[in-house]
Design a protein around this nucleic acid. Structure first.
Lengths: 343, 343
DNA sequence: TTGTACGCGTTATCAC
DNA sequence: GTGATAACGCGTACAA
């Protein structure tokens, strides 16, 4: 009675072997190393297997080979629009190689990140760790455990990593604004200690210095909308005619803050974001530095797969992905005078 | 030589048994059904296991029990802000039960959804399928395969499902707008064939009829920003003084469209969204119907776990989650006359 | 080229 | 309460 309700048992290698009149070893080889077999054998067994709906069990295979056929992508916040593209690209690339992907969300919490990584090490063949919030030493310890690991946007020596290089994009942004006649830029900093933030800040200062224009760096901000809204006033207070924000979320907040203050963007002030995660969903559409998250995800998986294949491989690969500026409508020629709040 | 490079082998149940002077069966019981053992035995073995850093192998356990200790949450688009909260809640709830969660992204593609589900059935103990894009019959077929399945926001008879009931929130929205003096509302439809869209449309029409106010239903729209921007003109053309959009993304687009046309929100027209996924990140902050995604995710996992435990359980559970209105700043008293584009 | 037999780490069954 | 041992489904030396 219970038998009738239960779903049809998946056929095992044994029944396929029996049905095909070969040994289980042969069936196994058909699915793992078919080149070792005579073509006709492969064809025959494949056909029988297809009829029976046989698929090798991941679990049993894993127990035998030690390979799970699964990798993980760990991000700090699945709701942050920067990450979905990297996840998606990773999934696609891994899937093409017959490997499944699980995504982990650490909720921006280093403790959770630690636990999650420990768990995922036991569930996967390797992990891509994106924008880790862990102190460098911890990252190093984790890498030392030997489980294949690739970092994205985290620059830790001795650990394979893919880095989006914001500098070129920032330089382009500064050049773009300077070309529009802006002589004083504000930079709205992101989280203190963020690798990306430091990179952006430094690049901006350097480029401004080269062009002989003024750069004012505002205090660190959490990369959130509210903070951006608040930052609008800070920007206005500097007298800058253009601002570059650490990321698009922040920039979008600034846009809202400007609207609340009655300051027109881009007529009275130009705003530039980073990451290009909001596409054209802001008003006005945001000029921004494209983050290349998708490419980073793909490359990370590629590198990870290599490590999984050859655990003895290169341990200190460092791939840099140059960013570039995407010009939309939130930047325009500098106004005659800096804007002031109207309401 | 290779031995030195490789990472330390994880200890197996055997070495723990030997070290503790008990049988492997006892060690196994310590980790799965400790209540069958004498307390002192449990304590002793636990201690030894801790010292050795032993953790039972998921793989071996799975092979033996048929339970993977893993469930899946499948969504159409991980980048759509409606889903992260349901994923997160699901992860949290499953994790509390010692079950890992993998998230699948179908990229809004029914074919991919089908493949992904097939793969995940073999990798998990059950799946939560959120906002499936599959035709009802296919959903039914999949459910019939017997792998534990719970639907979210998809109403298929005979398949356990959690549904966010938009009707109460929509009614509140209509009442809210009517209370502000609006006598003509527009509804900006979502994807044709969407369960949620139909529900919202019907509820809106019904409530408007009850209150004796006019409702104009616009054509179906993909729930994207661009479509919303385009829809702004359509709304203006109806002469309505307020519009309710299928979701927040669409509503945000309408906001942008209105800004482009020089129509002030909410002074000249009120805009209401659905799902509450943008929080207060729009300008002006959006009045919207809260979607309760988190609760839906939690409940879905709860139900799924039940199904995994007792495969013979109730097959036709249908849980309805009433929504409600969140009032922000995109709605205000009706203007004297409908707005017209200014630019 | 194919088959035999064993091992992978755990749980279930059945003794004791 | 605890132990011995046979599964679980597959990969792979080794033999043929």
């Amino acid at each position: 009675m219970a038998r009738l309700e239960g779903r049809r048992q998946a056929p095992t290698i044994k029944v396929v072997a029996a049905a095909a009149g070969v040994s289980t070893a042969t069936v196994s080889r058909v699915f793992s190393r078919p080149h070792l077999l005579r073509e006709s054998t492969v064809a025959h067994v494949t056909e029988i297997a297809r009829e029976l709906g046989y698929r090798p069990s991941h679990t049993a295979r894993a127990l035998s080979t030690g390979r799970l056929g699964m990798i993980a992508v760990v991000v700090p916040d699945i709701a942050n629009p920067f990450f979905p593209p990297v996840i998606r690209a990773a999934q696609a690339h891994a899937g093409a190689g017959g490997v499944s992907t699980v995504v982990g969300d650490t909720d921006e919490d280093p403790a959770k990140e630690l636990d999650l990584l420990a768990e995922l090490e036991r569930r996967t063949d390797g992990v891509v760790l994106v924008s880790s919030r862990l102190p460098e030493e911890q990252v190093r310890e984790i890498a030392a455990r030997g489980h294949p690991l690739v970092l994205v946007n985290r620059d830790v020596r001795g650990v394979p990593r893919i880095l989006v290089d914001s500098a070129p994009g920032i330089r382009e942004a500064v050049d773009h604004l300077a070309g529009l006649g802006h002589r004083h830029l504000a930079y709205i900093s992101g989280p203190a200690g963020s690798w990306s933030d430091e990179q952006r800040r430094v690049a901006l200062r350097a480029r401004c210095a080269e062009l002989g224009i003024t750069a004012t760096v505002l205090r660190p901000h959490r990369p959130e909308h509210d903070e951006g809204r608040a930052a609008a006033a800070e920007v206005l207070a500097t007298g800058a005619t253009a601002a570059i924000a650490f990321d698009d979320g922040l920039a979008q907040g600034v846009l809202a803050g400007m609207a609340e203050s009655g300051v027109a963007v881009p007529a009275e002030i130009s705003i530039v974001g980073c990451d290009d995660i909001l596409a054209a969903t802001t008003y006005p559409p945001l000029t921004t530095v494209h983050g290349r998250g998708g490419e980073a995800g793909r490359l990370a998986v590629e590198l990870l797969m290599e490590l999984v294949e050859r655990p003895g491989g290169e341990r200190d690969r460092r791939v840099l992905l140059p960013s570039h500026l995407v010009t939309r409508s939130s930047s325009a020629p500098a106004p005659a005078a800096p804007a002031a709040p109207r309401r």
